[in-house]
Amino acid sequence: MDYVTRGFRGRRREPDESARVPPGQYLTDDFPVLSAGPTPHRPVAEWSFAVVAQDGEQLARWSWDEFRALPSETVTVDIHCVTKWSKLDTTWEGVSVDTLLSDVEAEAGYVTAFCDGGYTTNLPLEDVTGGKAWVAFGYDGEPLEPEHGGPARLLVPHLYFWKSAKWVRGLRLMDEDEPGFWEELGYHLYGDPWREQRYWGD
């Protein structure tokens, strides 16, 4: 095997942890922060969350107080960042995307999450429904800090964490899968960590 690096041994994981860590990832106990620009500091009084149709029509909208009055869930999930760290058993509080879409009468194959700061990311609708995604406002029992995406971020733990858009302000329904911010810049359109879909062509 000519790709063996002389002298490298590495650090093996316990088998029960290994089964939870996707290929090419390592475990961290920290909570690293990644973002492409300055952290927006949006006061909740100026925050709202919207669901927008393909033609731009606003289908639903919640103020912060209305959003926080929706039923919420506490979930414990593993998260996987494309920069290679994974973190097990992270606990979040948020509103299921199913709840946010429950009264929306529209058809779409995809959604684009849009955010303060201009960030976007694209997801198939079926990946944010069926109990697979939340708009999270709490982390580890505390309000979500701005650097981690507060006041609220998308949480889609089964995909690489860039899909869990920070500072999220809404979902736009889409008929086609249009690449978002990182997806335009070389990152995979879908981003399944178990298939190691990090970059274009993976």
């Binding site: 095997m1 690096t5 490298f8 590495g10």
Partner: peptide
């Protein structure tokens, strides 16, 4: 990096 026994790590 790949170890002799095939174990790999990425950064």
């Amino acid at each position: 990096l790949t170890a002799e026994d095939g174990y790999q790590a990425q950064r």
